[in-house]
Simulated scan of single mutants.
Amino acid sequence: MHRLLLAASLAAALGLPAAAATTTPSVLLVVSSEGRAEGTTISRPGFEMDELAMAWLTLRANGLQVQIASPAGGAVVADRHNPRDDHVAAFLADADGVRQLQQTRRTQDVQPGEHAAIFLIGGKGAMFDLPRDTALLGLLAAHRGVLAAVCHGPAALLNVKTPDGRPLVAGRRMTGFSDEEERLFGKKWAKQYPFWLETRARELGAQWEEAPLMMPKLVVDGPLVTGQNPFSTTLVAEAIVRQLGRTPQPRTPHRDEASMQLVTRWLAGEQVAVRAALAAEPKRYNTDLIAMLGYYQAEAAIDDAARRQALAVMELAAPHMAHARFRLGLAQAYAQLAQPQKAREVLMALLAAEPANAEARAALAQLAG
C-alpha cells in the first residue's frame, strides 16, 4: 500500500498518469540530426557522443528505460570523438544503444506523456536543428515531467513557450555552454549559430549560472535540470534519476569524470591526497585532459584570481606533461603572476629538451629584458 501511495504521489508531482509510475520510468534522449560525415571528415557538426554515452550508461545503470530520438529520425552522425575512451567504448559495446542510434525515432512520432523525462544532448549540431524542430518544441511545451539538457542541448529550451506565451526559461535558474567556453571552443561553427546560449538565455530572463571554464556544473530548478558542458553530463543524468524517485547506484567514475573530480579536489585544497591518488594510479586519470583544462583556463583568464586557479590546474598536470605548448603556457602563467624565477626554470628545462625551440628562447629573453 505504501508503495502504491508513493507511486501515485510521484506521478502527481511529475504530471504523469498514476499508472505510469507503477512501471519502469522511461527517459527520452534527444540528439541532433545535423551531423554529416564524408569518410573520416565531419562536414557538418552533429551530436556529442561523449554526452550521449555517459547519459545512456548512467540512466541504464539505474534501471531506467531509455529511448533515442532525433528531429529527422533514422541514423545520426556524431561529432568527432575517441571510440577508445572508456565511456564511449562501453556504449558502443551495448547492442541496444547502437541499434537505437542507427534507428532513432523522429521527434514528431513521440507523444507527450510517453516518457517521465526528456534529456536534450548537446554537441554543436544541437545549436542548428533542435531549436527549429517544431515537433520537438511542441513536445517540450507539452511535457509535464523532468526536462533536462546539457552543454548545447538547452538551445531547444530557449525556443519553448509556456501556455501564457512566456519563454519557458524566463525567471528559471539554468546553465549551458557558456559564452566564455564558446569563444575558445566554438571555432568556425559558432559564427553560424542562430544565437549563443548564454547571451540568448539572459535576454529571455533566465537566471544564468556557470562554473569556471569547462568545470562541471549542475543546476536544478524544480523539474528543469541543466548541465554546463560535457563534464556535467553524469551530474545531469543522476539528477534525473533522483527526480524520478530513485537513489543513484554507486559506480566507478569514467576516466575523464574521475580526472575532473581530481581537479575539483585539488582546487579545494586536497593537494597531498590528490598527488597520492595520481601517483598510485596514473592510468586511472587523463592527465592530458587536466593539462588542457589548465592551459585554456589560463588563456581565458581575465584577472589574477582566474590565472591563479588556471596555474594551480597546470601545476597538477605539469609532472606528467612535457608538451612544448603546455610548458610555454605554464611559463607564461608564472610570469603573469610575478613568479619570474619559476617561469625561467620551466623555459630552461624546455630548452634543454628542445634546444631549437624559438618561442622558448624568445620568452626567456623577454624575462631577462
Rank of each mutant, 00 (worst) to 15 (best):
R80V: 09
R80H: 09
R80N: 09
R80D: 09
N82F: 12
N82Q: 13
N82M: 07
D85C: 00
D85P: 00
D85T: 04
D85I: 01
D86S: 02
D86V: 00
D86F: 02
V88Q: 08
A89R: 01
A89T: 00
A90R: 14
A90H: 03
A90Y: 03
F91H: 06
F91P: 03
F91L: 15
F91K: 05
L92R: 15
A93R: 15
A93I: 08
D94M: 06
D94K: 11
A95F: 10
A95I: 01
A95L: 07
A95Y: 11
D96S: 07
V98R: 13
V98K: 03
V98C: 03
R99P: 01
Q100D: 08
Q100Y: 04
L101M: 15
Q103F: 00
Q103T: 01
Q103R: 03
T104R: 02
R106L: 03
R106Y: 08
T107S: 12
Q108R: 15
D109L: 02
D109H: 10
D109P: 02
P112D: 01
P112V: 00
E114V: 03
H115I: 03
A116C: 09
A116Q: 15
A117D: 01
A117P: 04
A117R: 03
I118N: 08
I118C: 06
F119L: 12
F119M: 10
L120S: 11
L120V: 10
I121K: 01
G122I: 07
K124H: 13
G125S: 11
G125L: 10
G125T: 13
A126F: 11
A126G: 13
F128R: 08
F128Y: 15
D129R: 05
L130C: 08
L130T: 11
P131E: 04
P131S: 05
P131A: 05
R132P: 00
R132C: 01
D133C: 06
D133Q: 08
T134L: 09
L136M: 10
L136H: 14
L136D: 12
L136Q: 13
L136C: 10
G138W: 05
G138E: 07
G138D: 11
L139T: 14
L140Y: 12
L140C: 08
A142E: 13
H143C: 04
H143K: 06
R144D: 08
R144T: 13
G145C: 04
G145Y: 07
G145D: 06
L147G: 07
L147H: 07
A148H: 14
A148F: 12
A148E: 08
A148C: 09
A149V: 11
V150T: 13
C151F: 14
G153K: 15
G153C: 11
P154I: 06
P154M: 06
